Deep mutational scan, measured.
Amino acid sequence: TTYKLILNGKTLKGETTTEAVDAETAERVFKEYAKKNGVDGEWTYDDATKTFTVTE
């Protein structure tokens, strides 16, 4: 399944996708990605669109 991440950081904005077996796995991948890019904020997930959003 393809999951999407929307980054709404103070200095970094953008989108990325990952293939994962479930939302929990995708969330771990995306949180590591955000951490590596210095983005830390509020996380939300929309199951209907398989989209995570992190907003600083």
Rank of each mutant, 00 (worst) to 15 (best):
T1M: 11
T1L: 12
T1W: 11
T1E: 15
T1R: 08
T1D: 14
T1K: 07
T2A: 06
T2V: 11
T2K: 11
T2D: 05
T2R: 11
T2E: 09
T2I: 15
T2H: 10
T2G: 05
T2F: 14
Y3R: 00
Y3A: 01
K4H: 15
K4W: 11
K4A: 05
K4L: 09
L5V: 03
L5N: 00
L5E: 00
L5C: 07
I6C: 05
I6S: 04
I6R: 06
I6E: 04
I6V: 12
I6W: 04
L7Y: 10
L7T: 05
L7Q: 02
L7V: 10
N8I: 11
N8Y: 13
N8R: 11
N8P: 03
G9W: 04
G9C: 06
G9S: 09
G9A: 11
G9L: 14
K10R: 12
K10E: 07
K10I: 13
K10S: 13
K10C: 11
K10L: 13
K10N: 09
T11R: 12
T11D: 14
T11H: 14
T11W: 13
T11E: 11
T11Y: 13
T11Q: 10
L12S: 09
L12N: 08
L12I: 14
L12M: 14
L12F: 15
L12Y: 12
L12E: 06
L12C: 10
L12T: 14
K13E: 06
K13L: 07
K13R: 13
K13A: 07
K13P: 05
K13H: 12
G14V: 15
G14F: 14
G14P: 04
G14K: 14
G14S: 15
G14E: 14
E15M: 14
E15C: 08
E15N: 08
E15T: 11
E15L: 10
T16Y: 15
T16H: 15
T16P: 02
T17H: 12
T17I: 10
T17L: 10
T18W: 08
T18M: 15
T18G: 03
T18F: 11
T18N: 04
T18A: 10
T18E: 04
E19P: 05
E19Q: 10
A20T: 06
A20D: 03
A20E: 05
A20L: 03
A20F: 04
A20K: 03
V21F: 12
V21C: 08
V21W: 13
V21L: 14
V21G: 10
V21N: 13
D22Y: 04
D22E: 05
A23R: 15
A23E: 07
A23S: 12
E24L: 12
E24H: 11
E24A: 12
E24C: 09
E24M: 14
T25E: 14
T25Y: 08
A26V: 02
A26K: 00
A26R: 00
A26N: 00
A26L: 00
E27M: 14
E27Q: 11
E27F: 15
E27I: 08
E27P: 00
E27C: 09
R28M: 12
R28G: 07
F30S: 00
F30H: 01
F30T: 00
F30C: 02
K31Q: 08
K31G: 04
K31C: 05
K31S: 05
K31F: 06
E32R: 06
E32P: 02
E32W: 06
Y33C: 04
Y33W: 14
Y33F: 13
Y33L: 06
Y33R: 03
A34E: 01
A34Q: 02
A34D: 00
A34W: 03
A34I: 06
A34R: 01
A34M: 05
A34H: 01
K35V: 13
K35L: 11
K35G: 07
K35Q: 12
K35R: 13
K36H: 15
K36W: 08
K36L: 13
K36V: 14
K36F: 11
K36N: 14
K36G: 07
K36I: 14
N37E: 09
N37D: 03
N37F: 15
G38M: 06
G38Q: 08
G38I: 04
G38F: 07
G38C: 06
V39K: 02
V39A: 03
V39Q: 04
V39R: 03
D40S: 13
D40H: 14
D40E: 15
D40Q: 14
D40G: 10
G41T: 02
G41S: 02
G41F: 03
E42R: 11
E42H: 13
E42D: 09
E42N: 10
E42Y: 11
E42I: 15
W43F: 04
W43V: 02
T44F: 12
T44M: 10
T44R: 10
T44W: 11
T44V: 10
Y45K: 01
Y45V: 02
Y45H: 02
Y45N: 01
Y45G: 00
D46S: 07
D46G: 02
D46Y: 04
D47P: 12
D47K: 08
D47M: 12
D47N: 09
D47F: 10
A48G: 08
A48T: 11
A48W: 08
A48Y: 10
A48S: 13
T49Y: 05
T49L: 08
T49P: 02
T49K: 07
T49A: 10
T49H: 07
T49M: 06
T49R: 06
T49I: 08
K50M: 09
K50F: 12
K50D: 03
K50W: 06
T51A: 04
T51F: 02
T51P: 00
T51I: 06
F52V: 01
F52L: 01
F52T: 01
F52Y: 06
F52S: 01
F52N: 00
T53Y: 11
T53P: 00
T53D: 03
V54H: 01
V54Q: 01
V54D: 01
T55P: 01
T55E: 07
T55M: 07
E56W: 08
E56R: 03
E56T: 08
E56F: 09
E56Q: 13
E56C: 05
